[in-house]
């Protein structure tokens, strides 16, 4: 049984085709990255998984059942656009949202108290939402997504607006929930997070899956065709068009995509010959960022 199985899903709004023949398969217990440029149809896809929208064509199964009102309670959702009832008390909002997901109000209340403590918001429980800082509101919203212990968690940009301390806190909770069997769908533009956290990905563009599968396998299929170099000195030692397909500068670091069959040893030689000091020279698989850009620009070409 898969956490999500969407087959040939299409959704149109007037003349716009938001999602077109999308196949999406998320294994249970995975951290799954849903990637894609703005307007690719990610949010529409997520809304269909949550039964907020109904597909025009195709089928969606959530944890073995067709997406419906019943499967809604199995999902926890952190939308990208954040917001809560500003005038309500923190605890009341969370109990309300928990109860809407099927918890009894007493049960919701007990769990909300535990979660508020866990995220360091214990003393804020009787304050109005509007009295909280942005970061605190974000944590409250995260609680709203997890309070009913959903087997499927959909998080849209969960780390934006969080400082490193809180981002780590949320990340640890995510991993903990996954440990306990939850499946997590992570929708984000932060490729380094996807690379560190996700087992599998689906890259959506123009409403279609352009790349999907196990993240390691995808990267492996590209081979170790990239060299990451940390150096001091002149960068024109890389002026080797016969070896280098693409350069990606980050100041003191440069990522070099090699032409097929090019020997990375030649680059090392060129650097030594020009007297550039190297502190790092690593042969690696292409970063997800490059794969993303390549796939998306392919479609535009």
């Amino acid at each position: 049984m898969q956490a999500v199985a969407a087959d040939h899903v299409t959704k149109r709004f007037d003349t716009v085709v938001a999602v077109s023949g999308l196949d999406l398969h998320v294994e249970q217990g995975a951290v799954f990255g849903l990637l894609g440029p703005n307007g690719a149809g990610k949010t529409t896809s997520l809304r269909m998984i949550m039964n907020i929208l109904v597909p025009d064509e195709g089928t969606i199964q959530v944890l073995g059942q067709p997406a419906s009102e019943r499967t809604q309670d199995l999902i926890g959702y952190l939308p990208e656009e954040r917001g809560l009832y500003n005038k309500m008390k923190v605890r009341e909002v969370l109990v309300f949202l928990g109860a809407l997901k099927g918890l009894s109000e007493a049960e919701a209340d007990a769990r909300v108290r535990v979660w508020l403590e866990r995220l360091g918001l214990g003393e804020w429980s009787e304050k109005r939402v509007s009295d909280l800082s942005k970061g605190m509101q974000q944590k409250v919203q995260f609680i709203a997504a997890v309070v009913h212990q959903p087997p499927l968690l959909i998080l849209d940009e969960p780390f934006t607006g969080l400082d490193p301390v809180n981002a780590t806190l949320i990340k640890d909770i995510m991993l903990d929930l996954r440990e306990k069997g939850a499946t997590i769908i992570l929708s984000t533009h932060r490729m380094e997070q996807v690379e560190m956290m996700c087992d599998a990905i689906c890259l959506v563009n123009h409403g279609r899956a352009v790349l999907a599968g196990d993240l390691r396998a995808i990267k492996k299929s590209y081979g170790k065709n990239t060299v990451r170099i940390e150096y001091t000195g002149d960068s024109n030692f890389l002026d080797l068009p016969e070896l280098v397909e693409k350069l990606n500068h980050f100041g003191a670091v440069v990522e070099v995509k090699l032409r097929p069959g090019a020997d990375p040893q030649e680059i090392l030689k060129a650097a030594v010959a020009r007297g550039v000091r190297l502190t790092r020279f690593e042969l690696m698989e292409p970063p997800l960022n490059d794969i993303f850009i390549e796939k998306v620009s392919e479609a535009h070409a």
């Binding site: 907020i52 809604q72 656009e81 917001g83 809560l84 009832y85 949202l97 809407l100």
Partner: peptide, 17 residues
Amino acid sequence: LEEKTTRVVEILASSVR
């Protein structure tokens, strides 16, 4: 409108018809 501008409605719609 309040639920719409605060975007709470997105969470609500994922829970209730």
